[in-house]
Amino acid sequence: MIYAASSLPYRGDPNNLMHAEESMVGSKVIGSYAIQNTYLDARTPNFVTVILGDYRAIDTFGEQLVIYTAGMITFLLLAASKRRKNER
């Protein structure tokens, strides 16, 4: 795995492909697009908040459902087993 990591691009190089403004096929790269356009779109200086709450809002909604489901799993597992023990 360390040998495979040797062929990764240099860390912190601004000329990497994922930091470029346009990808190889000519479309916009979302990271650079976000840096240039978030303040004009939503008047919010924090880029991460705009990507989280606006561009990827449905994804964040899914994450919130996952968190809520995990809380309900603990409730159902532990409270249901308690009820079963009381019936015995």
Binding site: I67, Y68, G71, T74, L77, L78, K82
Partner: peptide, 17 residues
């Protein structure tokens, strides 16, 4: 709100279990 309530829910259920 959802994250706060979920953390409290996880802790309470584990302590009671």
């Amino acid at each position: 709100l959802a994250v706060m309530a979920t953390f409290i829910m996880i802790y309470d259920n584990m302590a009671r279990g």
